[in-house]
């Protein structure tokens, strides 16, 4: 983060976005749809990375922020007939508020206690979704009607049920969040986040209110994950309690570890990679949990910095 040339970084990120944009004209239908989904979930991973990678706080409960966005956006559409933009905003707000509330409590703990407390809050949130099944439809979930999933802008219709519009919307949101993480990572605020990860006591003695700094990071991370959840329900039209289960707290951790924590592009890389590993493997076996398990163990044993983290360490020190 030293005051260095920004040009290669910018070129790299624009290049990635450009490749994703071009891919949609090249890919066959199946992969086209899969990649749209991956981009939405990569936003989830980027939100997770902000807290885990940069601040060094390992949460096992981010499914609650993702699903806060999912239901925060999905329920108003399903029950109240809200429009897409208002629902999207409601989803993000739900995640941000939940993160504020949870953050004030969980940031009093550190290390292992932090991991367990985040997991428990997420579990309570998951159970609450089941408990309120009359509204949330519990584990069966609900499907948003096709007609509700479109935005009318000045006469033009932005239809989220068409594959190409889904892809563009996913790409747009992905790019926006990628730009946001890149901005945060290079900003003075990002420098303080990393400093807290490295040595919180020293950071405090440089005059920083580390609690407030971390709380903001939790809220930002929660809001980004909620944006992913909100986008998920609005673009793909489905919400169910499985998406709030502990599985969905572990997955972003896995994606980020794999791609490289505290790298801007690692979350995308990890999500893409994991999805395709499972996709390829499912041709041979249905045991995709086994693969998740093995990859997790291999990563922490031999590859704790992930793909991009290792590349940065060995070859490309400027990689953000």
């Amino acid at each position: 983060m030293t005051d260095r040339a920004f040009a290669p970084t910018l070129a790299l990120h624009l290049g990635v976005i450009a490749v994703l944009a071009v891919l949609q004209f090249v890919l066959p239908d199946y992969h086209h749809g899969l990649l749209a989904r991956i981009m939405v979930l990569a936003i989830f991973a980027m939100g997770y990375n902000l807290l885990f990678g940069y601040v060094g706080l390992l949460s096992l409960g981010h499914a609650m922020f993702f699903s806060a966005g999912l239901y925060g956006a999905g329920l108003p559409v399903f029950h109240l007939g809200w429009g897409v933009p208002a629902a999207f905003a409601a989803g993000i707000a739900a995640g941000g508020l939940l993160a504020l509330l949870v953050g004030v409590l969980v940031l009093r703990t550190t290390g292992v206690a932090f991991m367990i407390v985040t997991m428990m809050f997420a579990q309570a949130f998951y159970l609450a979704i089941l408990y309120f099944a009359p509204w949330t439809k519990g584990s069966e979930g609900f499907v948003l009607p096709q007609a509700a999933r479109a935005i009318d802008i000045a006469g033009a219709r932005w239809d989220l049920t068409s594959p190409s519009m889904r892809y563009w919307t996913a790409l747009l949101l992905f790019s926006a969040v990628l730009a946001l993480t890149l901005y945060v990572a290079r900003s003075p605020y990002g420098r303080v986040l990393v400093a807290i990860r490295e040595n919180e006591e020293r950071t405090r003695m440089l005059g920083y209110d580390t609690f407030a700094t971390k709380l903001l990071a939790v809220v930002l991370s929660g809001a980004i994950c909620a944006a992913s959840g909100a986008a998920y329900v609005l673009i793909f039209g489905y919400a169910g309690s499985t998406l709030a289960s502990i599985q969905y707290s572990i997955l972003p951790l896995l994606w980020v570890l794999l791609g490289g924590a505290a790298t801007t592009l690692g979350p995308l890389l990890g999500t893409v990679f994991m999805y395709y590993v499972i996709d390829v493997a499912s041709g041979y076996t249905t045991a995709w949990l086994l693969i998740v398990g093995i990859v997790l163990i291999l990563l922490v044993l031999f590859f704790p910095r992930g793909v991009l983290g290792t590349i940065r360490e060995r070859w490309v020190p400027w990689l953000p």
Binding site: G111, V112, A287, L289, L290, G293, I294, L296, L299, L301
Partner: peptide, 30 residues
């Protein structure tokens, strides 16, 4: 095979035992 090689580092072992959870569960299912 796993925990000792991680030097019992608290956070890494949690991630590793999550991995073990998935592996054991899947093998049981199979």
């Amino acid at each position: 095979l796993v925990l000792r090689r991680l030097n019992y580092q608290p956070e890494a072992t949690i991630v590793a035992t999550i991995g073990m959870l998935y592996i054991i569960q899947q093998l049981a299912l199979t």
